[in-house]
Design a protein around this nucleic acid. Structure first.
Lengths: 298, 298
DNA sequence: GATCAGCCATACATTTATGTATGGCTAAAG
DNA sequence: CTTTAGCCATACATAAATGTATGGCTGATC
Protein backbone atom coordinates (compact mmCIF):
# COMPACT_ATOMS: atom_id res chain seq x y z
CA UNK A 1 0.00 0.00 0.00
CA UNK A 2 1.14 3.48 -0.74
CA UNK A 3 2.21 5.67 2.11
CA UNK A 4 -0.51 6.82 4.44
CA UNK A 5 -2.08 10.08 3.55
CA UNK A 6 -1.82 13.10 5.80
CA UNK A 7 -5.00 13.65 7.73
CA UNK A 8 -4.82 17.36 7.04
CA UNK A 9 -5.57 16.64 3.41
CA UNK A 10 -8.91 15.15 4.36
CA UNK A 11 -9.76 18.37 6.07
CA UNK A 12 -9.22 20.38 2.93
CA UNK A 13 -11.10 17.76 0.99
CA UNK A 14 -14.11 18.09 3.23
CA UNK A 15 -13.83 21.86 3.11
CA UNK A 16 -14.06 21.87 -0.67
CA UNK A 17 -17.00 19.45 -0.58
CA UNK A 18 -18.80 21.70 1.84
CA UNK A 19 -17.99 25.05 0.31
CA UNK A 20 -17.93 24.14 -3.33
CA UNK A 21 -14.76 25.90 -4.35
CA UNK A 22 -11.10 26.06 -3.47
CA UNK A 23 -11.35 29.71 -2.57
CA UNK A 24 -14.34 29.32 -0.31
CA UNK A 25 -12.83 26.28 1.36
CA UNK A 26 -9.63 28.19 1.94
CA UNK A 27 -11.54 30.99 3.60
CA UNK A 28 -13.44 28.56 5.78
CA UNK A 29 -10.30 26.72 6.81
CA UNK A 30 -8.23 29.80 7.37
CA UNK A 31 -5.63 29.01 4.75
CA UNK A 32 -5.06 30.24 1.24
CA UNK A 33 -6.52 29.03 -1.99
CA UNK A 34 -3.30 27.61 -3.49
CA UNK A 35 -2.81 25.52 -0.37
CA UNK A 36 -6.20 23.91 -0.67
CA UNK A 37 -5.62 23.43 -4.37
CA UNK A 38 -2.37 21.62 -3.67
CA UNK A 39 -4.04 19.45 -1.04
CA UNK A 40 -6.71 18.33 -3.45
CA UNK A 41 -4.13 17.70 -6.12
CA UNK A 42 -2.09 15.64 -3.67
CA UNK A 43 -5.12 13.58 -2.73
CA UNK A 44 -6.05 12.95 -6.32
CA UNK A 45 -2.51 11.87 -7.05
CA UNK A 46 -2.44 9.53 -4.07
CA UNK A 47 -5.75 7.97 -4.89
CA UNK A 48 -5.14 7.94 -8.59
CA UNK A 49 -8.60 9.25 -9.35
CA UNK A 50 -10.34 12.50 -10.07
CA UNK A 51 -12.15 13.93 -7.09
CA UNK A 52 -13.35 17.19 -8.60
CA UNK A 53 -14.04 18.52 -12.03
CA UNK A 54 -12.42 21.92 -12.20
CA UNK A 55 -14.53 24.68 -13.50
CA UNK A 56 -14.47 28.42 -13.27
CA UNK A 57 -17.48 28.54 -10.98
CA UNK A 58 -15.90 26.16 -8.52
CA UNK A 59 -15.14 22.49 -8.23
CA UNK A 60 -17.79 19.90 -8.86
CA UNK A 61 -17.30 16.69 -6.90
CA UNK A 62 -17.22 13.45 -8.84
CA UNK A 63 -19.18 10.43 -7.74
CA UNK A 64 -16.01 9.07 -6.15
CA UNK A 65 -15.63 12.19 -4.03
CA UNK A 66 -19.22 11.94 -2.95
CA UNK A 67 -18.79 8.41 -1.72
CA UNK A 68 -15.78 9.44 0.33
CA UNK A 69 -17.60 12.32 1.90
CA UNK A 70 -19.22 10.41 4.76
CA UNK A 71 -15.82 9.33 5.97
CA UNK A 72 -14.45 12.83 5.86
CA UNK A 73 -17.46 14.06 7.79
CA UNK A 74 -16.85 11.34 10.32
CA UNK A 75 -13.27 12.48 10.71
CA UNK A 76 -14.44 16.02 11.34
CA UNK A 77 -17.01 14.93 13.88
CA UNK A 78 -14.48 12.83 15.71
CA UNK A 79 -11.90 15.59 15.70
CA UNK A 80 -14.47 17.95 17.16
CA UNK A 81 -15.41 15.39 19.78
CA UNK A 82 -11.79 14.89 20.73
CA UNK A 83 -11.25 18.59 21.09
CA UNK A 84 -14.37 18.95 23.20
CA UNK A 85 -13.37 16.03 25.36
CA UNK A 86 -10.00 17.63 25.92
CA UNK A 87 -11.53 20.95 26.84
CA UNK A 88 -13.73 19.23 29.40
CA UNK A 89 -10.85 17.34 30.91
CA UNK A 90 -9.33 19.97 33.15
CA UNK A 91 -10.47 20.82 36.61
CA UNK A 92 -13.37 23.16 37.20
CA UNK A 93 -16.60 23.53 35.31
CA UNK A 94 -15.33 25.02 32.09
CA UNK A 95 -15.37 23.86 28.52
CA UNK A 96 -18.02 23.17 25.92
CA UNK A 97 -20.86 20.75 26.49
CA UNK A 98 -23.03 19.73 23.58
CA UNK A 99 -26.63 18.98 24.43
CA UNK A 100 -29.13 17.46 22.08
CA UNK A 101 -32.88 17.49 22.51
CA UNK A 102 -36.05 17.63 20.51
CA UNK A 103 -36.98 20.96 19.02
CA UNK A 104 -39.82 21.57 21.40
CA UNK A 105 -37.87 20.74 24.52
CA UNK A 106 -34.88 22.67 23.22
CA UNK A 107 -36.83 25.82 22.54
CA UNK A 108 -39.43 25.77 25.30
CA UNK A 109 -37.85 23.99 28.23
CA UNK A 110 -34.08 24.02 28.06
CA UNK A 111 -33.38 27.76 27.79
CA UNK A 112 -34.43 28.41 31.38
CA UNK A 113 -32.49 25.42 32.66
CA UNK A 114 -29.37 26.25 30.72
CA UNK A 115 -29.53 29.90 31.72
CA UNK A 116 -29.50 28.92 35.36
CA UNK A 117 -26.63 26.56 34.67
CA UNK A 118 -24.66 29.29 32.95
CA UNK A 119 -25.27 31.62 35.86
CA UNK A 120 -23.83 29.05 38.20
CA UNK A 121 -20.84 28.37 35.96
CA UNK A 122 -19.97 31.37 33.82
CA UNK A 123 -17.01 29.61 32.25
CA UNK A 124 -19.19 26.84 30.88
CA UNK A 125 -20.17 26.99 27.23
CA UNK A 126 -23.15 25.14 25.83
CA UNK A 127 -23.99 23.96 22.36
CA UNK A 128 -27.56 23.03 21.63
CA UNK A 129 -28.38 20.56 18.87
CA UNK A 130 -32.08 20.37 18.22
CA UNK A 131 -33.17 17.35 16.28
CA UNK A 132 -35.76 14.65 16.56
CA UNK A 133 -33.26 12.22 15.15
CA UNK A 134 -31.24 10.64 17.94
CA UNK A 135 -27.65 11.81 17.89
CA UNK A 136 -24.92 9.29 18.37
CA UNK A 137 -23.75 9.63 21.93
CA UNK A 138 -21.24 6.83 21.59
CA UNK A 139 -19.39 8.71 18.91
CA UNK A 140 -19.86 11.96 20.77
CA UNK A 141 -21.98 13.82 18.27
CA UNK A 142 -23.37 15.20 21.48
CA UNK A 143 -22.33 14.86 25.09
CA UNK A 144 -25.74 14.77 26.69
CA UNK A 145 -29.07 13.85 25.17
CA UNK A 146 -32.60 14.49 26.35
CA UNK A 147 -34.61 11.73 24.76
CA UNK A 148 -38.13 10.38 24.87
CA UNK A 149 -37.19 6.73 25.01
CA UNK A 150 -35.13 4.46 27.17
CA UNK A 151 -31.60 4.30 25.81
CA UNK A 152 -30.79 0.81 24.62
CA UNK A 153 -27.05 1.21 24.21
CA UNK A 154 -24.70 0.18 26.96
CA UNK A 155 -21.88 2.48 28.05
CA UNK A 156 -24.40 5.19 28.73
CA UNK A 157 -25.29 6.83 32.00
CA UNK A 158 -29.05 7.30 31.89
CA UNK A 159 -31.43 8.91 34.32
CA UNK A 160 -35.16 8.51 33.99
CA UNK A 161 -36.90 11.81 34.58
CA UNK A 162 -40.49 10.69 34.41
CA UNK A 163 -43.24 10.91 31.89
CA UNK A 164 -44.13 13.99 29.93
CA UNK A 165 -47.74 13.81 28.91
CA UNK A 166 -48.87 14.93 25.49
CA UNK A 167 -52.46 16.03 25.13
CA UNK A 168 -54.75 17.94 22.81
CA UNK A 169 -55.00 21.66 23.44
CA UNK A 170 -56.61 24.75 22.03
CA UNK A 171 -56.91 28.37 23.02
CA UNK A 172 -59.99 29.19 25.04
CA UNK A 173 -61.24 31.80 22.59
CA UNK A 174 -61.07 29.23 19.79
CA UNK A 175 -63.10 26.83 21.90
CA UNK A 176 -65.48 29.64 22.76
CA UNK A 177 -66.22 30.12 19.09
CA UNK A 178 -66.36 26.46 18.07
CA UNK A 179 -67.38 24.77 21.29
CA UNK A 180 -65.26 22.38 23.26
CA UNK A 181 -65.64 18.82 21.93
CA UNK A 182 -66.81 16.21 24.40
CA UNK A 183 -66.32 13.18 22.21
CA UNK A 184 -63.62 12.25 19.72
CA UNK A 185 -66.22 12.26 16.96
CA UNK A 186 -66.66 15.99 17.37
CA UNK A 187 -63.01 16.55 16.48
CA UNK A 188 -63.87 16.17 12.83
CA UNK A 189 -65.78 19.43 12.92
CA UNK A 190 -62.71 21.28 14.23
CA UNK A 191 -59.57 22.79 12.78
CA UNK A 192 -57.10 20.04 13.61
CA UNK A 193 -53.41 20.84 13.73
CA UNK A 194 -51.16 17.89 13.03
CA UNK A 195 -48.09 16.44 11.45
CA UNK A 196 -47.41 16.19 7.78
CA UNK A 197 -44.98 13.32 7.56
CA UNK A 198 -45.04 10.67 10.21
CA UNK A 199 -42.21 10.90 12.67
CA UNK A 200 -40.84 7.97 14.60
CA UNK A 201 -42.60 9.04 17.72
CA UNK A 202 -45.92 9.36 15.97
CA UNK A 203 -45.54 5.95 14.44
CA UNK A 204 -44.91 4.39 17.80
CA UNK A 205 -47.75 6.30 19.41
CA UNK A 206 -50.15 5.72 16.55
CA UNK A 207 -52.03 2.93 18.23
CA UNK A 208 -52.87 5.18 21.15
CA UNK A 209 -54.30 7.98 19.05
CA UNK A 210 -58.06 8.39 19.26
CA UNK A 211 -60.09 7.65 16.17
CA UNK A 212 -60.92 11.24 15.34
CA UNK A 213 -57.32 12.43 15.28
CA UNK A 214 -55.61 11.23 12.15
CA UNK A 215 -53.87 12.55 9.15
CA UNK A 216 -56.83 12.80 6.85
CA UNK A 217 -58.62 15.24 9.15
CA UNK A 218 -55.80 17.69 9.62
CA UNK A 219 -56.58 21.16 8.40
CA UNK A 220 -53.24 22.60 9.39
CA UNK A 221 -50.18 20.44 9.04
CA UNK A 222 -46.55 21.01 9.82
CA UNK A 223 -43.68 18.66 10.37
CA UNK A 224 -42.20 21.11 12.80
CA UNK A 225 -43.52 20.54 16.29
CA UNK A 226 -42.66 24.15 17.01
CA UNK A 227 -44.85 25.35 14.19
CA UNK A 228 -47.73 23.24 15.47
CA UNK A 229 -47.24 24.68 18.92
CA UNK A 230 -47.22 28.19 17.53
CA UNK A 231 -50.45 27.55 15.69
CA UNK A 232 -52.10 26.21 18.81
CA UNK A 233 -50.98 29.30 20.71
CA UNK A 234 -52.25 31.54 17.96
CA UNK A 235 -55.70 30.04 18.37
CA UNK A 236 -55.73 28.38 14.98
CA UNK A 237 -57.32 25.18 16.20
CA UNK A 238 -56.82 22.02 18.20
CA UNK A 239 -53.47 20.30 18.28
CA UNK A 240 -51.22 18.11 20.38
CA UNK A 241 -48.56 19.44 22.68
CA UNK A 242 -46.88 18.66 25.96
CA UNK A 243 -49.19 19.22 28.89
CA UNK A 244 -46.70 21.03 31.15
CA UNK A 245 -46.00 23.37 28.27
CA UNK A 246 -49.66 24.17 27.76
CA UNK A 247 -50.27 24.72 31.43
CA UNK A 248 -47.85 27.64 31.35
CA UNK A 249 -50.21 29.49 29.06
CA UNK A 250 -53.44 30.35 30.86
CA UNK A 251 -55.33 30.77 27.63
CA UNK A 252 -54.71 27.17 26.55
CA UNK A 253 -57.28 24.59 27.50
CA UNK A 254 -56.88 20.87 27.34
CA UNK A 255 -59.29 19.02 25.08
CA UNK A 256 -60.51 15.45 25.54
CA UNK A 257 -57.93 14.58 28.21
CA UNK A 258 -59.43 11.18 28.80
CA UNK A 259 -59.33 10.23 25.11
CA UNK A 260 -56.03 11.70 24.09
CA UNK A 261 -53.19 11.11 26.48
CA UNK A 262 -49.73 10.07 25.34
CA UNK A 263 -47.19 9.69 28.09
CA UNK A 264 -43.61 10.07 26.88
CA UNK A 265 -40.93 8.49 28.99
CA UNK A 266 -38.17 11.05 29.38
CA UNK A 267 -34.50 10.29 29.85
CA UNK A 268 -31.31 12.24 30.20
CA UNK A 269 -28.31 10.26 28.96
CA UNK A 270 -24.59 10.74 28.72
CA UNK A 271 -21.58 8.63 27.83
CA UNK A 272 -20.19 6.96 30.90
CA UNK A 273 -16.68 8.26 30.20
CA UNK A 274 -17.98 11.74 30.89
CA UNK A 275 -18.94 11.03 34.46
CA UNK A 276 -15.56 12.31 35.58
CA UNK A 277 -15.81 15.42 33.44
CA UNK A 278 -16.82 18.29 35.68
CA UNK A 279 -18.66 20.36 33.05
CA UNK A 280 -20.59 17.41 31.64
CA UNK A 281 -21.48 16.27 35.11
CA UNK A 282 -22.76 19.71 36.02
CA UNK A 283 -24.80 19.96 32.86
CA UNK A 284 -26.19 16.49 33.33
CA UNK A 285 -27.32 17.22 36.87
CA UNK A 286 -28.78 20.58 35.91
CA UNK A 287 -30.75 19.02 33.08
CA UNK A 288 -32.03 16.20 35.23
CA UNK A 289 -33.24 18.42 38.04
CA UNK A 290 -34.51 21.10 35.69
CA UNK A 291 -36.56 18.65 33.69
CA UNK A 292 -37.94 17.13 36.84
CA UNK A 293 -39.17 20.54 37.89
CA UNK A 294 -40.66 20.98 34.45
CA UNK A 295 -42.62 17.78 34.90
CA UNK A 296 -43.70 18.68 38.40
CA UNK A 297 -45.28 21.99 37.33
CA UNK A 298 -47.92 20.01 35.49
CA UNK B 1 -12.92 28.67 20.90
CA UNK B 2 -9.26 28.37 20.23
CA UNK B 3 -8.14 27.64 16.72
CA UNK B 4 -8.83 24.18 15.46
CA UNK B 5 -6.06 21.72 15.95
CA UNK B 6 -4.27 20.10 13.05
CA UNK B 7 -5.47 16.56 12.53
CA UNK B 8 -1.90 15.40 12.03
CA UNK B 9 -1.26 16.07 15.68
CA UNK B 10 -3.86 13.50 16.66
CA UNK B 11 -1.99 10.97 14.63
CA UNK B 12 1.18 11.52 16.57
CA UNK B 13 -0.82 11.49 19.77
CA UNK B 14 -2.27 8.10 18.95
CA UNK B 15 1.13 6.86 17.91
CA UNK B 16 2.61 7.72 21.28
CA UNK B 17 -0.33 6.12 23.07
CA UNK B 18 0.14 2.95 21.08
CA UNK B 19 3.91 2.73 21.17
CA UNK B 20 4.60 4.19 24.57
CA UNK B 21 7.43 6.53 23.66
CA UNK B 22 8.22 9.40 21.33
CA UNK B 23 10.96 7.44 19.63
CA UNK B 24 8.87 4.35 19.02
CA UNK B 25 5.95 6.42 17.79
CA UNK B 26 8.27 8.27 15.44
CA UNK B 27 9.49 5.00 14.00
CA UNK B 28 5.97 3.72 13.58
CA UNK B 29 4.81 6.89 11.90
CA UNK B 30 7.84 7.28 9.70
CA UNK B 31 8.92 10.62 11.12
CA UNK B 32 11.59 11.58 13.61
CA UNK B 33 11.47 11.75 17.35
CA UNK B 34 11.73 15.54 17.69
CA UNK B 35 8.77 15.93 15.36
CA UNK B 36 6.56 13.72 17.47
CA UNK B 37 7.80 15.48 20.58
CA UNK B 38 6.83 18.83 19.12
CA UNK B 39 3.41 17.52 18.14
CA UNK B 40 2.69 16.32 21.64
CA UNK B 41 3.95 19.59 23.06
CA UNK B 42 1.71 21.50 20.67
CA UNK B 43 -1.30 19.44 21.68
CA UNK B 44 -0.64 19.90 25.36
CA UNK B 45 -0.31 23.61 24.82
CA UNK B 46 -3.55 23.79 22.86
CA UNK B 47 -5.48 21.75 25.39
CA UNK B 48 -3.83 23.35 28.34
CA UNK B 49 -3.34 20.03 30.05
CA UNK B 50 -0.68 17.41 30.51
CA UNK B 51 -1.14 14.40 28.27
CA UNK B 52 1.97 12.47 29.17
CA UNK B 53 4.35 12.30 32.06
CA UNK B 54 7.83 12.40 30.57
CA UNK B 55 10.20 9.82 31.84
CA UNK B 56 13.38 8.31 30.53
CA UNK B 57 11.73 4.99 29.85
CA UNK B 58 9.10 6.62 27.67
CA UNK B 59 5.97 8.67 28.10
CA UNK B 60 3.24 7.57 30.46
CA UNK B 61 -0.22 8.75 29.44
CA UNK B 62 -2.23 10.67 31.99
CA UNK B 63 -5.86 9.87 32.66
CA UNK B 64 -6.82 12.73 30.38
CA UNK B 65 -4.86 11.23 27.51
CA UNK B 66 -6.50 7.89 28.11
CA UNK B 67 -9.97 9.33 27.85
CA UNK B 68 -9.08 10.98 24.54
CA UNK B 69 -7.72 7.79 23.11
CA UNK B 70 -11.00 6.35 21.83
CA UNK B 71 -11.50 9.41 19.67
CA UNK B 72 -8.02 9.21 18.24
CA UNK B 73 -8.58 5.55 17.46
CA UNK B 74 -11.81 6.47 15.76
CA UNK B 75 -9.99 9.01 13.64
CA UNK B 76 -7.49 6.38 12.59
CA UNK B 77 -10.19 3.87 11.73
CA UNK B 78 -12.05 6.44 9.70
CA UNK B 79 -8.94 7.55 7.88
CA UNK B 80 -8.20 3.95 7.01
CA UNK B 81 -11.75 3.45 5.82
CA UNK B 82 -11.55 6.54 3.65
CA UNK B 83 -8.33 5.40 2.10
CA UNK B 84 -9.75 1.97 1.44
CA UNK B 85 -12.87 3.44 -0.04
CA UNK B 86 -10.77 5.58 -2.33
CA UNK B 87 -8.65 2.65 -3.43
CA UNK B 88 -11.78 0.71 -4.31
CA UNK B 89 -13.22 3.56 -6.28
CA UNK B 90 -11.36 3.25 -9.52
CA UNK B 91 -12.21 0.97 -12.39
CA UNK B 92 -11.13 -2.62 -12.36
CA UNK B 93 -11.01 -5.11 -9.53
CA UNK B 94 -8.11 -3.73 -7.54
CA UNK B 95 -7.76 -2.37 -4.07
CA UNK B 96 -8.15 -3.70 -0.57
CA UNK B 97 -11.32 -5.36 0.64
CA UNK B 98 -11.74 -6.07 4.32
CA UNK B 99 -13.79 -9.13 5.15
CA UNK B 100 -14.97 -10.07 8.61
CA UNK B 101 -16.25 -13.47 9.66
CA UNK B 102 -16.31 -15.80 12.60
CA UNK B 103 -13.11 -17.61 13.45
CA UNK B 104 -14.36 -20.96 12.25
CA UNK B 105 -15.67 -19.71 8.96
CA UNK B 106 -12.59 -17.56 8.49
CA UNK B 107 -10.16 -20.40 9.04
CA UNK B 108 -12.04 -23.33 7.58
CA UNK B 109 -14.22 -22.00 4.82
CA UNK B 110 -12.99 -18.67 3.53
CA UNK B 111 -9.41 -19.51 2.55
CA UNK B 112 -10.52 -21.63 -0.39
CA UNK B 113 -13.03 -19.05 -1.52
CA UNK B 114 -10.62 -16.16 -1.21
CA UNK B 115 -7.86 -18.05 -2.96
CA UNK B 116 -10.10 -18.59 -5.95
CA UNK B 117 -11.06 -14.93 -5.84
CA UNK B 118 -7.42 -13.87 -5.77
CA UNK B 119 -6.67 -16.13 -8.71
CA UNK B 120 -9.39 -14.43 -10.69
CA UNK B 121 -8.25 -10.94 -9.68
CA UNK B 122 -4.55 -10.85 -8.88
CA UNK B 123 -4.64 -7.13 -8.20
CA UNK B 124 -7.17 -7.54 -5.44
CA UNK B 125 -5.93 -7.52 -1.86
CA UNK B 126 -7.89 -8.99 1.01
CA UNK B 127 -7.85 -8.33 4.71
CA UNK B 128 -9.46 -10.87 6.97
CA UNK B 129 -10.80 -9.86 10.37
CA UNK B 130 -11.83 -12.85 12.41
CA UNK B 131 -14.07 -12.05 15.32
CA UNK B 132 -17.32 -13.23 16.76
CA UNK B 133 -18.15 -9.67 17.65
CA UNK B 134 -19.98 -7.99 14.78
CA UNK B 135 -17.86 -5.31 13.15
CA UNK B 136 -19.40 -2.00 12.32
CA UNK B 137 -20.13 -2.07 8.61
CA UNK B 138 -21.69 1.37 8.65
CA UNK B 139 -18.46 2.92 9.80
CA UNK B 140 -16.48 0.66 7.54
CA UNK B 141 -14.52 -1.27 10.11
CA UNK B 142 -14.99 -3.92 7.49
CA UNK B 143 -16.36 -3.86 3.97
CA UNK B 144 -18.06 -7.21 3.89
CA UNK B 145 -19.29 -9.34 6.76
CA UNK B 146 -20.24 -12.99 6.91
CA UNK B 147 -22.66 -13.20 9.79
CA UNK B 148 -24.93 -15.74 11.37
CA UNK B 149 -27.90 -13.47 11.83
CA UNK B 150 -30.08 -11.29 9.69
CA UNK B 151 -28.63 -7.77 9.58
CA UNK B 152 -30.99 -5.30 11.21
CA UNK B 153 -29.38 -2.09 10.02
CA UNK B 154 -30.61 -0.34 6.96
CA UNK B 155 -28.18 0.88 4.32
CA UNK B 156 -26.82 -2.61 3.99
CA UNK B 157 -26.89 -4.93 1.03
CA UNK B 158 -27.60 -8.36 2.45
CA UNK B 159 -27.80 -11.74 0.81
CA UNK B 160 -29.14 -14.74 2.61
CA UNK B 161 -27.00 -17.78 1.92
CA UNK B 162 -29.02 -20.39 3.72
CA UNK B 163 -28.67 -22.26 6.95
CA UNK B 164 -25.50 -23.82 8.22
CA UNK B 165 -26.38 -26.65 10.53
CA UNK B 166 -24.46 -27.22 13.73
CA UNK B 167 -24.47 -30.73 15.12
CA UNK B 168 -22.62 -32.95 17.56
CA UNK B 169 -19.68 -34.85 16.14
CA UNK B 170 -16.95 -37.19 17.22
CA UNK B 171 -14.25 -39.20 15.54
CA UNK B 172 -15.26 -42.76 14.70
CA UNK B 173 -12.44 -44.31 16.70
CA UNK B 174 -13.58 -42.41 19.77
CA UNK B 175 -17.07 -43.71 19.26
CA UNK B 176 -15.69 -47.17 18.68
CA UNK B 177 -14.10 -47.08 22.08
CA UNK B 178 -16.97 -45.43 23.96
CA UNK B 179 -19.96 -46.45 21.90
CA UNK B 180 -22.15 -44.09 19.95
CA UNK B 181 -24.88 -42.62 22.17
CA UNK B 182 -28.44 -43.18 21.07
CA UNK B 183 -30.13 -40.94 23.60
CA UNK B 184 -29.18 -37.57 25.07
CA UNK B 185 -28.94 -39.16 28.50
CA UNK B 186 -25.96 -41.19 27.34
CA UNK B 187 -24.02 -38.01 26.63
CA UNK B 188 -23.23 -37.67 30.30
CA UNK B 189 -21.00 -40.73 30.12
CA UNK B 190 -18.93 -39.14 27.33
CA UNK B 191 -16.12 -36.64 27.07
CA UNK B 192 -18.05 -33.56 26.09
CA UNK B 193 -16.27 -30.68 24.41
CA UNK B 194 -17.90 -27.29 24.91
CA UNK B 195 -17.65 -23.62 25.53
CA UNK B 196 -16.28 -22.01 28.64
CA UNK B 197 -17.96 -18.64 28.62
CA UNK B 198 -21.30 -18.26 26.95
CA UNK B 199 -21.17 -16.51 23.64
CA UNK B 200 -24.04 -14.59 22.13
CA UNK B 201 -24.80 -17.36 19.75
CA UNK B 202 -24.87 -19.95 22.50
CA UNK B 203 -27.20 -17.81 24.57
CA UNK B 204 -29.62 -17.50 21.73
CA UNK B 205 -29.40 -21.17 20.89
CA UNK B 206 -29.57 -22.30 24.50
CA UNK B 207 -33.22 -23.18 24.43
CA UNK B 208 -32.63 -25.61 21.57
CA UNK B 209 -29.84 -27.50 23.27
CA UNK B 210 -30.72 -31.03 24.39
CA UNK B 211 -30.78 -31.70 28.09
CA UNK B 212 -27.58 -33.71 28.22
CA UNK B 213 -25.43 -31.02 26.62
CA UNK B 214 -24.78 -28.24 29.08
CA UNK B 215 -21.97 -26.51 30.79
CA UNK B 216 -21.78 -28.64 33.87
CA UNK B 217 -21.05 -31.78 31.87
CA UNK B 218 -18.20 -30.44 29.76
CA UNK B 219 -14.96 -32.27 30.28
CA UNK B 220 -13.04 -30.18 27.78
CA UNK B 221 -13.86 -26.50 27.48
CA UNK B 222 -12.56 -23.75 25.29
CA UNK B 223 -13.94 -20.40 24.29
CA UNK B 224 -12.26 -20.71 20.96
CA UNK B 225 -14.46 -22.51 18.47
CA UNK B 226 -11.32 -23.44 16.61
CA UNK B 227 -9.88 -25.14 19.64
CA UNK B 228 -13.08 -27.12 20.11
CA UNK B 229 -12.97 -28.16 16.49
CA UNK B 230 -9.37 -29.25 16.84
CA UNK B 231 -10.23 -31.35 19.85
CA UNK B 232 -13.08 -33.03 18.02
CA UNK B 233 -10.76 -33.80 15.13
CA UNK B 234 -8.15 -35.15 17.52
CA UNK B 235 -10.67 -37.65 18.80
CA UNK B 236 -10.86 -36.16 22.26
CA UNK B 237 -14.59 -36.50 22.56
CA UNK B 238 -17.95 -35.28 21.39
CA UNK B 239 -18.47 -31.65 20.51
CA UNK B 240 -20.49 -29.30 18.36
CA UNK B 241 -19.36 -28.10 14.98
CA UNK B 242 -20.77 -27.12 11.63
CA UNK B 243 -22.10 -30.13 9.74
CA UNK B 244 -20.62 -29.27 6.34
CA UNK B 245 -17.27 -28.88 8.03
CA UNK B 246 -17.46 -32.28 9.67
CA UNK B 247 -18.58 -34.00 6.49
CA UNK B 248 -15.25 -33.07 4.90
CA UNK B 249 -13.49 -35.32 7.35
CA UNK B 250 -14.41 -38.95 6.74
CA UNK B 251 -13.39 -39.96 10.23
CA UNK B 252 -15.94 -37.67 11.87
CA UNK B 253 -19.38 -39.09 12.63
CA UNK B 254 -22.43 -37.15 13.57
CA UNK B 255 -23.95 -37.93 16.95
CA UNK B 256 -27.62 -37.64 17.89
CA UNK B 257 -28.55 -35.70 14.77
CA UNK B 258 -32.23 -35.75 15.66
CA UNK B 259 -31.64 -34.34 19.15
CA UNK B 260 -28.95 -31.81 18.47
CA UNK B 261 -29.50 -29.68 15.41
CA UNK B 262 -28.92 -25.93 15.42
CA UNK B 263 -29.52 -24.24 12.09
CA UNK B 264 -27.63 -20.95 11.73
CA UNK B 265 -29.00 -18.49 9.26
CA UNK B 266 -26.08 -17.24 7.22
CA UNK B 267 -25.81 -13.83 5.59
CA UNK B 268 -23.28 -11.95 3.56
CA UNK B 269 -23.65 -8.20 4.02
CA UNK B 270 -22.03 -5.07 2.66
CA UNK B 271 -22.64 -1.35 2.84
CA UNK B 272 -24.86 -0.25 0.02
CA UNK B 273 -22.42 2.46 -1.07
CA UNK B 274 -20.03 -0.30 -2.06
CA UNK B 275 -22.32 -1.78 -4.68
CA UNK B 276 -20.62 0.35 -7.30
CA UNK B 277 -17.17 -0.60 -6.11
CA UNK B 278 -15.79 -3.24 -8.43
CA UNK B 279 -13.52 -5.00 -5.91
CA UNK B 280 -16.14 -5.12 -3.17
CA UNK B 281 -18.71 -6.33 -5.61
CA UNK B 282 -16.42 -9.10 -6.80
CA UNK B 283 -15.60 -10.17 -3.26
CA UNK B 284 -19.24 -10.06 -2.26
CA UNK B 285 -20.28 -12.28 -5.14
CA UNK B 286 -17.41 -14.68 -4.60
CA UNK B 287 -18.30 -15.02 -0.93
CA UNK B 288 -21.97 -15.54 -1.63
CA UNK B 289 -21.44 -18.24 -4.23
CA UNK B 290 -18.58 -19.84 -2.34
CA UNK B 291 -20.59 -20.10 0.85
CA UNK B 292 -23.53 -21.49 -1.04
CA UNK B 293 -21.30 -24.24 -2.37
CA UNK B 294 -20.07 -24.85 1.14
CA UNK B 295 -23.64 -25.35 2.30
CA UNK B 296 -24.48 -27.57 -0.62
CA UNK B 297 -21.63 -30.02 0.07
CA UNK B 298 -23.46 -31.09 3.18
C1' DG C 1 -19.50 45.39 -24.88
C1' DA C 2 -17.35 46.93 -20.84
C1' DT C 3 -16.91 46.34 -16.03
C1' DC C 4 -16.83 43.69 -12.08
C1' DA C 5 -16.63 39.79 -9.11
C1' DG C 6 -15.44 35.23 -8.46
C1' DC C 7 -12.81 31.46 -9.60
C1' DC C 8 -8.49 28.55 -10.77
C1' DA C 9 -3.52 28.15 -12.00
C1' DT C 10 1.22 29.47 -11.76
C1' DA C 11 5.71 31.64 -10.23
C1' DC C 12 8.14 33.37 -6.56
C1' DA C 13 9.20 34.60 -1.57
C1' DT C 14 8.79 33.26 3.06
C1' DT C 15 7.54 31.00 6.86
C1' DT C 16 6.91 26.71 8.98
C1' DA C 17 7.74 22.11 9.85
C1' DT C 18 10.86 18.57 9.67
C1' DG C 19 15.32 16.14 9.79
C1' DT C 20 20.18 15.80 11.59
C1' DA C 21 23.39 15.82 15.14
C1' DT C 22 24.41 15.85 19.73
C1' DG C 23 24.33 15.72 24.80
C1' DG C 24 22.44 14.17 29.13
C1' DC C 25 19.93 10.97 31.51
C1' DT C 26 18.45 6.26 33.41
C1' DA C 27 18.28 1.26 33.87
C1' DA C 28 19.92 -3.03 32.81
C1' DA C 29 23.73 -6.06 31.46
C1' DG C 30 28.54 -7.38 31.47
C1' DC D 1 32.10 -0.11 38.04
C1' DT D 2 31.76 0.28 33.13
C1' DT D 3 29.29 -0.30 29.12
C1' DT D 4 25.43 -0.38 26.37
C1' DA D 5 20.98 0.65 24.77
C1' DG D 6 17.10 3.25 25.07
C1' DC D 7 14.94 7.44 25.95
C1' DC D 8 14.07 12.76 25.90
C1' DA D 9 15.64 17.57 25.01
C1' DT D 10 18.03 21.06 22.45
C1' DA D 11 20.53 23.59 18.63
C1' DC D 12 21.22 23.92 14.02
C1' DA D 13 20.54 22.88 9.00
C1' DT D 14 17.41 21.59 5.55
C1' DA D 15 13.39 20.55 3.16
C1' DA D 16 8.54 21.26 2.74
C1' DA D 17 4.50 23.55 3.12
C1' DT D 18 2.32 27.81 3.01
C1' DG D 19 1.51 32.64 1.71
C1' DT D 20 1.85 36.51 -1.74
C1' DA D 21 1.28 38.31 -6.13
C1' DT D 22 -0.35 37.89 -10.52
C1' DG D 23 -2.63 36.48 -14.84
C1' DG D 24 -6.32 34.37 -17.36
C1' DC D 25 -10.80 32.73 -17.47
C1' DT D 26 -16.02 32.87 -17.09
C1' DG D 27 -20.60 34.70 -16.17
C1' DA D 28 -23.45 38.27 -14.42
C1' DT D 29 -24.59 43.21 -14.37
C1' DC D 30 -24.95 47.71 -16.02
Amino acid sequence: MAKDIGWELYRSFLGVLREGSLSAAARALGVTQPTVGRHIAALEKSFGLTLFVRSQGGLQPTQAAGSLRVHAEEMAKTAAALQRAAANQGTGVRGVVRVTASEVVGVEVLPAILTRLRNDFPELKLELVLSNRPQDLLHREADIAVRMFRPHQAQLVARRIGEIEVGLHAREDYLGRHGCPDHPQELAANALIGFDQQTDFIRRAARNLPAGFDRERFVLSADSDLAQLAMIRAGAGIGACQVPLASRDRRLVRVLPEHFCLPMETWVTMHEDLRNSAPCRAAFDALATGLQQYLAQD
